[in-house]
Amino acid sequence: MTGVLVLTGVTRVHGAGEAAVHALAGIDLDVAPGELVAVMGPSGSGKSTLLTLAGGLDSPTSGTVAVEGIVLGALSRAALAAVRRRSIGYVFQDFNLIPALTAAENVALPRELDGEAPRQARALAVAALEEVGIDELADRFPDDMSGGQQQRVAIARAIVGDRRLVLADEPTGALDTETGEQVMRLLRARCDAGVAGVLVTHEARHAAWADRVVFLRDGRTVDETGRAATAESMLSSAAS
């Protein structure tokens, strides 16, 4: 099965010769629709590089990154920008909403930039806000919202239209534990509804919402948890 995001033998080297640093070294990763994959590892392990490459913001030194079957390295700059607008959504630790725009305008922005008529873009934005449970805040400005609400807007922006890949970089980093959990529940729910998600986090508690957890160290995958356990093993492990 071909995933929404497929990394094949991805290596990213910064610098050259003696000073060369392997930020990533031979990473393979396949994220299917409906799947949430968490990437963990110490600082400098390559987590952020992986997300940057997956989002087409940087290119691998070798190997390929494909989003919905399209190999990003083969694209012109304009075509790459179009894939990024249409297929890839980002969620950041600090929300990255535009303060001068309302929630709905923030969410509609990527659609408008992609040439959608304003009215249609707004309709898609309101639908996305509905999916994250805050359509009543559509006309509110970011400064008048709590951190958790702003992150919901950011998730709505990440899934607006038909975007099927969400890349989340420490999305709970600026939130308290309870609000952070609500954001993780939401991200989990969007993935259960068919989105493919990649979550970079250093918090195991949040990584545990993922179907799979990948550990990176020094740019390599050192370990990976498998697929879901059965209900029986859950109870026996809970009891031990």
């Binding site: 989990r188 195991a204 508690r205 545990a208 957890v213 370990d223 948890t225 879901a228 093993s233 859950m234």
Partner: peptide, 20 residues
Amino acid sequence: VQRQRTATIRALQDYTRLKA
């Protein structure tokens, strides 16, 4: 350390599924 961390993350995933 590594084997334990993988096992504990799995347990954590199980608890999280029960929570969900």
